[in-house]
Design a protein around this nucleic acid. Structure first.
Lengths: 200, 200
DNA sequence: GTCTATAATTCGATAGAC
DNA sequence: GTCTATCGAATTATAGAC
């Protein structure tokens, strides 16, 4: 079966070369996430991203087709929201805030949420991504909370959590930055919980 | 006293000419507020602003010294927050939300708050303005609420109100846009109130 | 006071050599 | 696959005519 051996060695070589190309691709994407999250869509230039990734600006276009398509990839994210049907009814607020804070505090700068939130106010592409994330991830997850009437709940919860992230991680409002995470879980958790209690 | 008459007629003439110049200045500022609020600092160009004001782009620089200084003027705002020492302790949440919504719903597009919020995420100048507004207007006003412990309260209230404005007026998240103002006053008011109750 | 013309940058994207 | 060189467009800001 020389054919099989040929295929195998081809795949190995292909995988090896893909590893090299994929490493470049990952380097671009990683640099893009950091700079998009720091400066927003307009503020982060293709040249800056290429410089941070250690490659030529032309490669960014070659790998991703354009700045806009690179941004869409960089702003991609999975919130991995917990299944609220497993959470006690009076602990939903704290659970959500704790999960949301963990997304930001751990590796937040490398994820897509800071990228999307930073640019959403001044870039329609980013705004659309954020609206889509709400519709496909946040709203369905909140709807699984037991005994909740449909209504404005999901939008109001999103407003509160995004407002917290905005003031703490984007605007960096000093009094919000210094609040310990545990305090946020309790205080904001209670406030979010009051939204759920009212929708029951 | 021909001197007095001379001064008087000079002042009248001066006032007349100032009226003309002031009208141009107001036209620029008004156009700048609308475009800065719509597209953010980077998205709104001096050319666009001049075109909407019906004057030459060079005049914008001449009147305001530069795009950045025009922005500072456009982002200036007075929240006119009510004196919370006059408000019943259990109505503070609703009072704040109602006042905040009124700022946005009536003439919001012409004010400085949409300008500042739209650009705060991607422009340090705007972010500084917003932080300054919090420090000089929001925090002192909230501190006048009777029987409140100092702590994270002010920052959390600002987070919730800014989050609401962000989702409703900037991001235009559909489920948040369609909520009637009265519902917002009640629902968000209760949630804000729970922050105050916990700080007592 | 006002406008024309342009200076001086900076950006995304592409063509083509290697 | 990668890089050099550059195009074409858009930006703020200024200089100078009227």
């Amino acid at each position: 079966m020389s054919t099989d051996v040929g295929i195998l060695s081809f795949m190995l070589e292909k995988q090896k070369k893909q590893t090299k190309a994929e490493r470049t691709r990952e380097a671009i994407l990683s640099a893009a996430r950091i700079l998009f999250a720091e400066r927003g869509y307009d503020g982060a230039t293709v040249r800056d991203i290429a410089a941070r990734a250690g490659i030529d600006p032309a490669m960014v276009i070659r790998y991703f087709g354009g700045k806009d398509m690179l941004f869409v990839q960089a702003a991609d994210l999975d919130l991995r929201l917990p299944d609220l049907s497993d959470v006690p009814g009076d602990a939903i607020g704290e659970t959500l805030v704790r999960h949301f804070l963990a997304i930001w505090e751990t590796g937040g700068a490398a994820g897509g949420l800071p990228v999307a939130l930073r640019s959403a106010a001044s870039n329609e592409l980013a705004a659309g991504r954020l609206r889509e994330i709400f519709a496909t991830q946040v709203a369905p997850a909140l709807a699984r909370a037991p005994g909740i009437r449909p209504g404005p709940l999901a939008g109001l919860v999103a407003s509160q959590l995004l407002g917290l992230a905005f003031c703490r991680y984007v605007l960096k409002l000093p009094p919000v930055v210094v609040i310990p995470p545990e305090t946020l879980v309790i205080e904001v958790g209670r406030s979010v919980q009051s939204l759920f209690d009212a929708a029951r």
